[in-house]
């Protein structure tokens, strides 16, 4: 399936309250991503990378600005949607890969990957889950629980789960932060190639300059809320 999609981030701001202190994490940030393109987000710890990804997932509410995702000529505005609508939208249209704890421990490898298909009532994708895991080199681990897998294997399962629905948008929050260099490179390749092949927009937060350089565009966040956008 080919996506005609685009992500638009328009002058978004987000702050957190800590007692009487207001901590501004993102201020007036804007950028666009086209279908099949990727953007890497870099910056020091506390610069707001995870907050940005959570905002793109609809997990946190914005203070100002808006994020819109255009899918097949329909535009979904994050600001206009309530939490319930954002959850339903996320379930259908967004894949997410975390750094840690990204598999449900009480589901087997195959069940973890099939979970989005089940949640979206897409039985047609269940067979694809096995194929995908085979492509990712995990065909012999389908019925194992995550606790028996290595870190690299767990992260490959997480990527497979995130791309199963071929969502228009895939978010990855430091997906290689907990892996050795060999596994890091393998996971990065998987992410970028899967997104390119399936026309998925990828927003990837990372501390690794090598991985950030693999994206089409780079977004650098400073410790103070200001951002610079540059082509990779």
């Amino acid at each position: 399936m080919t996506h005609h999609s685009a992500l638009t981030v328009h002058q978004i701001s987000k702050h957190y309250q800590d007692g009487n202190r207001q901590i501004e994490v993102i201020r007036d940030l804007s950028f666009n991503v086209a279908a099949g393109k990727s953007i890497s987000v870099t910056g020091p710890s506390g610069s707001g990378k995870s907050t940005l990804l959570n905002a793109l997932a609809g997990l946190v509410e914005l203070d100002d600005g808006d994020i819109t995702l255009e899918i097949q000529d329909k535009i979904f505005s994050y600001r206009a949607a309530n939490e319930r609508a954002r959850t339903a939208f996320r379930r259908q249209h967004i894949g997410y890969v975390y750094q840690f704890f990204n598999l449900v421990p009480t589901l087997t490898v195959l069940e973890n990957v099939r979970l989005p298909a089940r949640l979206n009532r897409r039985p047609d994708l269940e067979a694809f889950a096995s194929t995908l895991l085979g492509d990712f080199g995990l065909s012999d681990r389908l019925h194992d629980f995550p606790e028996k897998l290595s870190g690299g294997e767990q992260q490959r399962v997480a990527v497979a789960r995130a791309v199963l629905l071929r969502p228009p948008l895939l978010l990855a929050d430091e997906p290689t932060g907990n892996l050795d260099s060999g596994n890091s490179a393998q996971i990065a390749d998987l992410l970028f190639s899967s997104c390119r092949d399936q026309n998925i927009m990828l927003v990837l937060a990372t501390h690794s300059h090598e991985i950030a350089a693999m994206a089409d565009t780079r977004l650098h966040l400073d410790a103070r809320p200001s951002a610079s956008l540059a082509p990779a």
């Binding site: 996320r90 379930r91 975390y98 990204n102 449900v104 949640l119």
Partner: peptide, 16 residues
Amino acid sequence: QTGRQLLNTLGVNRVE
């Protein structure tokens, strides 16, 4: 809690 956060990210709603 992270397990629950993960399910939330996957779009599991409150009723579920």
